[in-house]
Design a protein around this nucleic acid. Structure first.
Lengths: 132, 132
DNA sequence: GTAATTCTGGTAATTAAATGCTCAAATGTA
DNA sequence: TACATTTGAGCATTTAATTACCAGAATTAC
């Protein structure tokens, strides 16, 4: 069984984590996020760090510290979060990146670009506040 | 820049390679396939071996040997080839495979299963003879 | 001020994919 | 028959991405 589509664990943590944080008044720490997303605290820590640097979260060290939202939930789209972690989504026709294609016409025509665009539009339409 | 979608080089070699073979009367050897797909002969050899075992190609060793189609070009769909290499495509709702989801509703709803199905249908509709 | 808690950031380990290597087996040709 | 060519198959190496770990710095609570 193979997946055509897969989300990296990092991207999953970013999206799920920020929603969990948004649902809390007081902030949420790494350990709780890890527990609730069934992932390792180490990985969560790394992902959260990136969201802090990117300006989506603020962090608070020390006892009763943790992360909380810096922006409004309705102003954070899944697309932004996804692209912080994965990089800007590339809409390309060919899923391979060979300098030369032996074919006049890409055998994937536009199916991959169409689907990628569809996915991107979906991500853009979803914001954190929709999941509170 | 990130890709939402990517094809493994192995799958690419399978699809492109079989079309190149189908275009030849006399068969095509590993080296020529590797040249025309800008890939390594080692990788091509491995992929072709799998297509031989799966019954799509016949191989001929020795001088002027190479690979040729075993089935009719119109009877070979991209889906079959893809699944020989990658395994059967899984249509799942969630792109993550966690035993427990902390959310009532998957944040990816049906977007990924819809897109995967779309891709699968595309592959099923394409046959080798369309590219001769 | 001491200790416990929590994030930070650099580094290490793991994994999967791709690539490379080598020898064996088969086949055509001189 | 001898030799060059080509696939077959297993194993080793390399590479990139992901994931995990650990020591250190900041902060709060007591």
């Amino acid at each position: 069984m193979s997946k055509v589509f897969s989300l990296s664990e990092a991207a999953s943590i970013a999206l799920h984590g920020i929603i969990l944080i948004a649902r809390e008044k007081e902030g949420l720490n790494v350990i709780k996020i890890a527990e609730r997303t069934s992932t390792s605290k180490h990985h969560v820590a790394k992902v959260m760090q990136r969201l802090v640097k990117a300006g989506y979260l603020t962090s608070q060290r020390g006892p009763s510290g943790g992360f909380s939202l810096k922006k409004k939930a309705e102003d954070i789209s899944f697309l932004e979060l996804y692209e912080v972690i994965e990089g800007v989504i590339e809409i390309s026709t060919c899923p391979m990146d060979k300098p030369i294609c032996p074919f006049d016409k890409c055998i994937f025509k536009n199916v991959t670009s169409k689907m990628t665009l569809e996915f991107k539009n979906y991500l853009q339409g979803q914001t954190v506040d929709m999941y509170l």
